[in-house]
Nucleic acid binder design. Structure first.
Lengths: 300, 300
DNA sequence: CGCGTTTACGCCTCACGTAAACATC
DNA sequence: GATGTTTACGTGAGGCGTAAACGCG
């Protein structure tokens, strides 16, 4: 029995399948399979029931799981307590929404690279539902999402707040004759992300507070497209404050005045609650001191 | 960092030197040295101060020691809890006194062999002081001694009681005109093991209770020699009861009548208190159900 | 047939033991 | 010189990935 075997077993037992677990321990699924077979041989019992498409834990496997987790945590604690502070290595699969990818990811990548030159961050941009599922499945190590997860298996920690601002193109405002969002929502097209996104939730919350309803909507799952449509004068919308002001400074957009009070978007880092790797602790540390959300360079 | 490395580190830290630790983990001292060097490299710190003839733990090593012990205990617990009940393997260095070696060892070896065919018991016969030191140094896995140790680092568990009987050769009794030990101690030669042995302690306890002193003594560190001398009529002595009666049955010795009440010798299994290997647990189990002290075959 | 896992196989690293060298007392 | 540890080095086992095969839906 080796730590590698226990690690392989643990992730195989808690990830969606062996292939995902293999990625997490940075080996081929063939090797992972063999590590588990070796562990089973050394303990003299079956840990997985492999009849069927997906391997499922046996009773013995169930009993081993908390023990293996404990071993791995303690091994991690030793490395953390005593190990020299050489940087992490390997890969970190980091999920996030598109806005985080544009406003926050570059600075974060820089911070990670400065502290851990050997760690390769692999960002995956997807919507919140996909991100949460991939987190649970083990395909992502952690993810930045708008708001804490509803899933019990995922833990979270605040990353920062993105304040929102109403925006529209100068031509659009001229055409409408008003820059008051409370008036625009009656009749004008509100362009934003699909239902379920943090942005849409923030809008609905705002509308509820003001007794308004947003009738005409256009949703697109791509921020660049949303911004382009707003800029083209197809409608009005919401954007992170810094982003909006950056575009306003070069005349591309107008920040609608007066800015209505909007709930800010609380972004959190999420990870699997049962994931006790040093990688996670370090990501939490780094996002805790990360820079604020910024306007994406490409739109300034 | 691997379990093997932690195991090597633990025993290197708690045995008298690397060579002894290497025997305990069944590798050459070269390999043990390299395992420790590997561990040091993987943690990025020095665990032993190797300037000097004996390696001594550094501060980092001190901190790692309890963590490593914990890891090994948990690994052992996994094997014990889940592992199939295949027998132990490897070697068990078992120390004991000469009497235990003759009266008790054969039956114990048989019991071990029946339960653990792959385990090789290596008995070492020596006196109690030597046994205790070797236990502490790590050269012995466990030992059967007369009475619990005075050393705090050693734990113990009762194995059995050896009842004693007075013996002398028929010719000796005839020559002395008495078979009462309380009379024989005045003037006759008492033949026994060296001071410090359980047998001598039992005699002194008996003498103290009866207000007697044993003046003439002959000590030899070899039971066979002691028995031979008693049988040759050089003096009288004490022997385990079964042993004495076995020799009396064939007329070789007389069991002196009436048998004075003597404290029996309480034999215990001793092991290092910090030794949490499954080997020790199994030895404790086996001696707990082991056969009683018997007359050694060679003297029946 | 698609998906998930294991087997086959060639490769190569790494851990081992023997033996010599080194360091300390 | 005796003792304790490390280095040198040749050997062998075992872990690795690629790719093919297997087994279940």
């Amino acid at each position: 029995m080796t730590l590698k075997q226990l690690e392989a077993f643990y992730w195989a037992a808690t990830c969606i399948n062996f292939a995902v677990a293999a990625e997490r321990v940075h080996v081929s699924s063939s090797s992972l399979s063999k590590r588990i077979a070796e562990l089973e041989h050394s303990l003299g019992l079956e840990l997985f029931d492999k009849t069927g498409r997906n391997s499922v834990l046996t009773g013995h496997g169930d009993r081993l799981l908390p023990l293996a987790k404990d071993m791995l945590e303690r091994a991690g604690a030793i490395r953390e307590t005593l190990g020299s502070s050489i940087g992490l290595s390997g890969r970190c699969r980091l999920g996030m929404g598109e806005m985080s990818a544009m406003c926050w990811l570059p600075a974060f990548i820089a911070a990670v690279a400065a502290r851990h030159p050997g760690l390769q961050v692999e960002p995956l941009v997807a919507n919140d539902q996909v991100l949460e599922r991939r987190l649970e499945d083990g395909e992502l190590d952690c993810a930045v999402l708008a708001g804490a997860s509803s899933r019990g298996g995922l833990a979270s920690q605040a990353v920062g707040e993105a304040e929102l601002a109403w925006v529209a193109s100068p031509e659009f405002v001229t055409r409408c004759g008003t820059d008051r969002p409370a008036e625009l929502v009656n009749g004008q097209l509100f362009i934003s992300l699909p239902a379920g996104s943090g942005l849409t939730r923030a809008l609905d919350q705002w509308a509820g507070q003001h007794g308004l309803s947003v009738e005409r909507r256009l949703s697109c799952n791509n921020w660049g497209a949303v911004v382009s449509m707003i800029r083209a004068g197809l409608g009005f919308g919401l954007m992170p404050r810094e982003w909006a002001h950056a575009m306003a400074r070069r005349g591309a957009l107008l920040v609608l005045q007066p800015e209505e009070r909007l709930p800010s978007l609380g972004y959190v880092l999420q990870w699997r609650r049962d994931d006790s790797r040093a990688l996670i602790a370090e990501m939490r540390r780094l996002v805790g001191r990360s820079v604020a959300f910024r306007a994406p360079e490409c739109f300034i």
